[in-house]
Design a protein around this nucleic acid. Structure first.
Lengths: 211, 211
DNA sequence: GAGGCTATCAAACGCTTGTTTGAAAGTAAA
DNA sequence: TTTACTTTCAAACAAGCGTTTGATAGCCTC
């Protein structure tokens, strides 16, 4: 084995662990996920997690990655369209990130899980991902409303949209039982996103024009 | 010790365990909650849970109680008001159940937690509580819309409302960090409920009149 | 008062968890 | 060849979990 190969193997092990960790964390949540399961999927030894990441917490920190969410924001911000259309596009892309088996961002799914069941990484997640997201969405919704909203009002508008979106991911076990035929295929996700967008845009415009 | 006192003590222990279990389950979730912590709060021996309920699962089954949710529906159904006002009232009462420290129904909070992190009791919860709730809300929203909605559309309307409501409960750790001043006092809960109601009624009417 | 039943208790059991250990194998530098 | 360093591995460790056990004491029935 040459040095390059060894390096390669080491890097490969590290990388395989991160990939496996994203799978398991996003599916089972941080607490329910076990180091043994992750190592099994990564075909690595149990001690590898502690050797490469210092522990389960360290692995989570490495598995987290805000790039997909930031990319979504970036794409949306540079969209040449009116606020309403950009809001629709945002919800559409966000839902595909959360639900689409093919395009899904496991990193975002891990974050979505963290919201309901916090870990020590929550502070970092809020600071680096959720707070900027709230800020961006808040300004976008301000444009939709056509007038500056109060801080609290703006936060509630954002919460209304995020709450709807996350419900489909975090309450999937329930929704599955309510409608056994439910499958999150491309068509269904588009329908859900369209519903949330139409529902929310009406809500924003109405509330903004009333208060 | 007389028989009555013994009976009483036994019943007291059982009852204290259920009360303590509701507290701990609603605060920490079923999985994170420990039998030892519950017994400690109930001032009971560790073996008491198994003796009285056959295990942690059995204690959860007894701690669950759908009466408060059913009562909310019953109250709302017999309300002498138009569909819009009944929807507002429903959201108002539901949010107080989920958030108000004084009026809160711990049983409902346990259920809210179960949505995100299912246990073996989820089937029972869906069957006995959530499905009827969805059905009732669906019909109510139908009246609001003024026309019969399709099954999928109706389900999405209900999901939009429940998603918004549950977000404030299940994502509290995040919202707390976004706004450190946030306190779920009576006034704040009323404001949140009013927002969700106004937001959602506008969404329903708009979507219903368009499609 | 003997036997049976109920309820409680301290202690221990068996299992799973994340983590640590010490040896082994390989490469690179001296 | 020796030395040092990196990576992997099987095994064990310590802690926490839900659960079980066997003893104890009180009350009822006979």
């Amino acid at each position: 084995m040459t040095e390059a190969e060894l390096r390669g193997n080491s890097e490969q092990t590290r990388e395989r662990l991160i990939v496996a960790a994203r799978e398991v964390f996003s599916q089972q949540g941080f607490q329910s996920a076990t180091v043994r399961e992750i190592c099994k999927r990564a075909e690595a030894n149990i001690a590898a997690v502690n050797y490469h990441f210092g522990g389960k917490d360290g692995l989570l920190a490495e598995a987290l990655n805000f790039a997909p969410l930031k990319a979504l924001q970036q794409t949306n911000a540079t969209l040449d369209a009116c606020p309403k259309v950009r809001t629709q596009a945002f919800i559409h892309d966000f839902m595909h990130m959360l639900l689409d088996e093919k395009k899904a961002s496991l990193q975002c799914q891990i974050m979505a899980r963290e919201l309901a069941d916090p870990t020590p990484a929550l502070d970092q997640i809020v600071r680096d991902a959720i707070a900027p997201l709230h800020e961006y969405l808040g300004e976008l919704l301000n444009e939709v409303a056509g007038r500056p909203m109060g801080e609290a009002e703006q936060r509630r508008m954002v919460s209304s949209i995020l709450g709807q979106c996350l419900y489909y991911r975090n309450s999937q076990p329930v929704l599955q039982r309510m409608d056994p035929k439910l499958r999150y295929d491309h068509k269904e996700i588009n329908a859900i996103a369209a519903h949330i967008a139409a529902f929310s845009l009406a809500g924003i415009l109405q509330v903004a024009s009333t208060n």
